[in-house]
Structure formats: C-alpha cells, structure tokens
C-alpha cells in the first residue's frame, strides 16, 4: 500500500521494500526491534489505520508525525496494546517483537507492557511520593529484592531521567508537588526503572514549556543509547531535532517512512512535502 502510494506520486520508483525506510542512515545500527506488517485498526465501523507497514530499529528514536487525527497515537498504542482498554476496537495484522506477534491470544499484554514502556502526553505521576513513583513498579516485577537495591535503582533511574539533582533531597514528597516538566521526567524515570526494551512517548512535551521541552529532548537523545524510542509529536522541529527516523501518517495511512534528514530536506512523497512545508496540517 505504502509503496503503491509512492508509485502513484513519485517517479521514478525506487525499490522500497514494505516497512523499510526509503532512505537509511547507515551510521546507526539496524537491528530490528518491532516489525509491523499490514496493520489495520477499526474503532467500531471507522477504520483508523490502513495497512501500516513499518520496521522500528533498536536504539534509535523514531518520530511519528502527521496532522491531528491521522492515527499516529493510535498506532503508538498498538505497540503496547493500550488500545485493548478501549471498547469496540478491532485490530488485524502483525506487530512482531522478539519473534512474537504481540496480538496473538497467548501473548500476555501485561508482559508486553513490561517490555514496552510508555510516557503520556500529560504527566501522570501516581499520587505517591517521588521515591514510590519510581520504586513501585520494579518492586511489583521483583526486579529488586533488597532495600539497598531499591534505593540504587531509584537513584539510577532518576539520574538517567536527569531529575536526580533536583529531587534527591525531597524523595518522600508527593510526585504531584513537582513542576510539569519535572513530573514528566519523573514519569520517564518511572518508565525506565522497569528496564523496558522500547519506550513509547505520546507527545511527551506538548503540555510543557519550551525549557522543559528542550530538557526532555536532550534526555531522549541520551536514552536512545539504552532504549528504543518511538515518539509521537506535533512539533516538526522536534522530530527533526531528536529523531533518527520519521514516519508521516495521514488519514490512517503511513504515507512515508524515511530517514529524518532526508524526510525534512528531500521528502519522497508529495504529501509529506506539503505537510512539512506547512501547506496543511
């Protein structure tokens, strides 16, 4: 589908395989993390995703861009099956991770979410202390047993999230007492504390001020050394700044998946070009 769209709109057709970016950045490693094939999704009668094919690579940042309602958040939520929480959702197609289809009946969505973390649009720390916010999930998952391990894990996660210096003296204050940007970094610390493979970020900076946004963008850049990051963003400059690969969605279709530099300098499809140059969206 993707390639057909491309074929219609661009000539000459390069030999693009389904799911692969049109152009690859050869400097980053290319181990596959998540493979998506012919993914369709319906909300009741409305089809929200049409035959999406995409390969997400390990330890890269992949940005999903597109106008509102184009299905980018919906797609993101397919990767950790958060769409299960919505009624009347039907999914069809393959989302493969670690050799397993995440939608197969035998797959435990809790186990999946354990390996695919998520950060939300609005910071949503639990109404507990900062320490508990981070330590709570690892304790559930038996990642830490001893008290000392737990302290160490909390410190490491908060350091990785760039929050440690700001909160180390008030670990037992409620998480909600922090500022918006700090709350969001607390949520990131919480997500990385369970050591997932993939972190999904659903417009993580849209509720934040520019300075907090810049901090989180820097953080994403650092975190990709350990984790695979898939982020949805409204902000094209953000995608251009942080992402290795960018996927452009429009009306539930993946129009173009490309190396970020190429996408923003020389997009392959007309639609992506129009969107990036600000002609709609």
């Amino acid at each position: 589908m993707n390639s057909q769209v491309a074929e219609r709109e661009m000539t000459p057709m390069t030999s693009q395989r389904a799911g692969q970016p049109v152009t690859r950045n050869e400097q980053v490693n290319h181990d596959l993390s998540v493979r998506v094939r012919d993914l369709n999704l319906w909300y009741g009668e409305n089809q929200a995703l049409h035959d999406v094919n995409i390969d997400v690579f390990q330890k890269t940042v992949t940005a999903l861009i597109g106008p509102s309602g184009c299905g980018k958040s919906t797609f993101l939520r397919c990767l950790n099956r958060m769409n299960d929480l919505i009624r009347d959702v039907r999914i069809d197609g393959l989302v493969e991770m670690d050799g397993r289809d995440v939608n197969e009946p035998k797959m435990d969505e809790v186990a999946l979410r354990r390996r695919v973390g998520m950060v939300f649009q609005k910071p949503n720390p639990f109404p507990k202390s900062i320490f508990e916010n981070v330590a709570y999930a690892p304790r559930m998952h038996d990642l830490v047993s001893r008290r000392a391990d737990q302290d160490e894990l909390v410190e490491r996660s908060l350091r990785d999230a760039g929050l440690w210096e700001e909160v180390k003296d008030k670990l037992h204050q409620p998480g909600t007492s922090l500022s918006g940007g700090q709350q969001q970094r607390l949520c990131i610390a919480r997500a990385i504390a369970v050591q997932p493979d993939v972190i999904l970020m659903d417009e993580p900076t849209s509720a934040l001020d520019p300075i907090s946004t810049a901090t989180i963008e820097d953080l994403m850049d650092k975190l990709k050394q350990q984790f695979t990051i898939v982020t949805v963003t409204h902000n094209m400059q953000q995608a251009a700044r942080v992402a290795d690969y960018t996927a452009f969605f429009h009306l539930g279709e993946l129009i173009e998946y490309n190396d970020t530099k190429t996408m923003f300098s020389n997009p392959y499809t007309k639609k992506a070009e129009d969107y990036i140059t600000g002609r709609y969206g």
Binding site: D98, R100, D108, A111, L112, R114, R115, Q195, P196, D197
Partner: peptide, 13 residues
Amino acid sequence: MSQSFDEITTQLK
C-alpha cells in the same frame, strides 16, 4: 539484557 516474553509470562502467573 531483558527477559524474554515467556520468562515474564511465567513470573506473571
């Protein structure tokens, strides 16, 4: 580095 799905699933029972 991280556990496989099967390992986690067993722990989750």
